[in-house]
Amino acid sequence: MNLPILSIIVPCYNEQEVLAETMEQLATKVEQMIHENIVSKNSKILFVDDGSIDNTWKLIYKASLSNEFIKGLKLSKNAGHQNALLAGLFAAKNSSDCLISIDADLQDDIDAINEMVRKYMEGYEIVYGVRSSRESDTFFKRFTAEGFYKLMDKLGVKLIFNHADFRLMSRRAVNELEQFAECNMFLRGIVPLIGFNSANVYYDRNERLAGETKYPLKKMLAFAFDGITSFSVTPIRLVLLVGFLSFMISLLFGIYFLILKFFGKTELGWTSLITSIWLIGGLQLIAIGLVGEYIGKIYKETKRRPKYIVDVDLLNLPISKKIGNVEQHGYEQILEKQKLSENH
């Protein structure tokens, strides 16, 4: 049986502090797997620069000149982690049998890649990397993360518990993923919808090698909210339920106050009046904001704008190691070669 061609997709955004170590570890991993006859010698590592403003792209470009396994894809602007991941998957799928996505900080254990490929060889087309525990997380992060997965399950969104974006997908699975044309791509929810034969590989999460996390609390909350509103209309139904309950409660209080009026026991009260106004006003603003979020998503979808734009593609472009000085004219020559190849 022919050995599978593996592509490792690594989205990068301002990762200059960690990138050199990441490249070395991943390149060593691919070399070992080739030596052990696990993957083909045509396997590669594709680093996707998501519009970084530091030296991330320069490091990728230099490494691609000296290491045959390392390739680069540069997006024209920051498109977001999920879109950068999609750009790498779609760019590499035609020259790969299976593709693994992993973050540049290498907190996900690269030794689990061997087991993922073995699962693929057994016939699984999607293999999820799942954290065996969250003991290394702070209490707050562990509590909020587990709460998010449980909430999504209650809302009817089937996610793989303790799985992020560390996964293997076959070329066939990525081809099917490309059929999902929506702009708001929440991959943790979309990939299970593909429905192909899948398996889990468990691993322990490592500490970040260097640099700072690209997902602080604000981004994590936004990501979670985007996932909820992209996959479930339950929040809209909850607004309807709250409105219905408020209506029923108001009817009961109306009957109660009519009875008091009938017996002459009513008193004018400013506190109860202003409290009711603030309560109903707050509920209305929440409802309008939530409905607006869904309308905003519909608005984005109707525009059909591209999820990302590729600036430079080093994946399929042959690069001579004798191009010359990288900083001065190597980059321009690559651009020129790419334009020529596109014209022909």
Rank of each mutant, 00 (worst) to 15 (best):
I277S: 03
R304I: 07
K261S: 05
F247P: 08
F244S: 11
V242H: 08
K261Q: 04
W278D: 03
D226I: 01
E293Y: 11
I274R: 06
K265M: 10
A287K: 02
W278I: 13
K300S: 12
F244Q: 06
T275F: 08
R305E: 13
E293C: 13
V233R: 13
E301T: 06
Y299L: 11
G282C: 07
A224M: 03
G292C: 12
L245A: 10
G296D: 14
F244M: 10
G281Q: 06
F257M: 03
Q284F: 15
D226T: 06
F263D: 05
L268N: 04
I288Q: 09
F257W: 12
W270D: 04
L251G: 07
I228Q: 01
T302A: 05
P216R: 02
K303G: 03
I274V: 15
R305G: 02
V291S: 07
F247V: 06
L285S: 08
V310S: 00
Y308V: 00
F231P: 01
L241I: 07
A224I: 01
I236H: 07
I255W: 10
I280G: 06
T302V: 15
F257R: 05
F223Y: 07
L279A: 11
L290E: 15
I277W: 05
T275C: 09
K218P: 02
V233D: 14
T266D: 03
L240P: 01
I236L: 15
I298N: 08
V233Y: 04
S230G: 06
M248S: 13
G264K: 08
Y308R: 00
T229M: 12
K300W: 15
L221P: 00
